Simulated scan of single mutants.
Amino acid sequence: MAQEEIIFPNNIRNIRMATGMKMTELARQSHLSLSAVSKIEKGVRRLNQKQLLNICNILGCKLSDIFIKEDDAVADQWQSEIKRRLNDNEDSGLKIFGSGLRKIRQQTGKTIAQAAADAGMTLSVYHKIEVGQREIYQNEIEPLAKSFAMSAEKLFDKIANLYKSGELNKQISKVKERVKSVLIPDNPASGIDMHGGLYGAKLYDSARKKLVPVFGVPDGKSITFKKSDETMIVAPMPLEGRSGIYAVIPNSKRLGGFVPEHAYVFADATTAPAVGDLAVCIDTDFDKLEPDAVATAQIVSVRQDSKGKVYGQIASPEEKIIGHTMHKVIMIVME
């Protein structure tokens, strides 16, 4: 029997159970089917960025909590299960058949969508056959072979000859490497120190590139600033994949109404502001700020005094702010 291969090892089930939430409740709140949530928790289905963020909010966890770290107690269990499923599919011959089918499709110049349509299959079913995750039923063989102008016997012979010649080794290796990539511990360059490698670091990075951490929230007359990925929002398209970007929820009253309420202010930690710019002004060294340490910040208009000294200015009431770090505000987006 074909085994669905694990492509997204995760901690969602453990986090859900620790909160006492039932799978049915997670499915309801996330607007996913019970079957989809079950597959996600088993690691055989991925989530897009918005779904990941939504589940983090529902479970009250960080994005990084969902991914398996190298030193997690469950890392070995995931690794063993991934290898078992991979080996089961190889031993059953599904990998060879799927790789042969893919080679034939590529030789004919067909896209996977065209091949699926010609064989009368959905794109999902055809793809699973090519990657060796689904058996072929007897009533599917003839239409599949006919889509390549072959008989069923000729299709099997063609795949067997490709395998004997060694031409499928590269195809099988690509599938294997793609699956095993979730096992490679790595330290993703996301701007947040993950304190150790992640299994599926590429998946984390892919999700992380489309999200931005919220470092600052209003607190009285100032902004509490915490360099953490505890709260994330979807990045505006122009900011996707840019390093050093973070968001702050402004204290609009202190900006004299210049920045509307219910907005996010996006700043670039790699860009110093010029006189006349808006900036996030932090009372400590940003680069030395630990993830759980709390600082104070303000959104300021950058000014320069008669002696050439740069400072920040805020309104309501007017106040001169001298901070340790200033980052240029590059975008303001309504919530």
Rank of each mutant, 00 (worst) to 15 (best):
L162H: 00
K95N: 05
G308E: 07
S64R: 13
Q79C: 08
K226Q: 14
Q79E: 15
L101R: 02
G98I: 00
G43Q: 01
S252T: 07
E81R: 08
V175T: 13
Q313T: 04
E135H: 09
K146F: 13
L255N: 10
I184H: 06
R28K: 11
I330P: 06
I223C: 00
K95C: 02
L86P: 08
I245L: 06
I299G: 04
D285R: 00
G241N: 06
L26P: 07
V234I: 15
A295T: 03
D71T: 12
L289D: 06
T108M: 12
N14L: 11
S38Y: 03
Q114V: 07
A207Y: 08
L34S: 15
A116N: 08
V125L: 15
F97I: 07
M21Y: 00
E70C: 01
Q313M: 09
R254L: 02
L155T: 02
T271Y: 04
T108C: 13
A115H: 01
R242L: 13
P317E: 08
K209G: 12
P260Y: 11
R178L: 02
G323R: 02
N169D: 12
Y137K: 09
V310D: 09
G132K: 00
A116S: 12
S173E: 15
P238Y: 02
T19G: 11
A36H: 10
Q49I: 11
V234R: 12
I299L: 05
I245V: 05
L63Q: 13
K158M: 05
A235P: 07
G244E: 06
K221D: 15
S252D: 15
S301I: 15
L34P: 11
E130Y: 03
N48S: 03
V74F: 08
D186R: 13
I12H: 02
G100N: 00
Q3V: 06
D65A: 07
V131G: 01
E230T: 15
K253A: 14
S222A: 09
I223W: 01
S151R: 05
I96Q: 01
C281H: 14
K253P: 07
F67K: 05
G276I: 03
G276M: 08
K50T: 14
L52G: 07
D305P: 12
F8I: 03
D157Y: 05
V248S: 02
S181L: 06
I314V: 10
V37F: 02
Q138F: 14
F215D: 11
G93E: 00
I129M: 00
I68C: 02
K42P: 11
R242C: 12
D65Y: 06
D118Q: 14
N48H: 04
R84N: 02
E4D: 14
Q29V: 04
F67W: 08
S306N: 15
F215T: 12
Q107H: 07
G244R: 04
V248Q: 01
S222F: 14
N11Q: 01
A36E: 07
S243A: 12
L239C: 08
I82A: 00
D186E: 13
S80V: 02
G276E: 08
K128T: 09
K174Y: 09
K170E: 13
K210V: 04
K154F: 03
M1Y: 09
E142M: 05
I15L: 08
I7Y: 09
K176Q: 09
Q298P: 15
S38N: 12
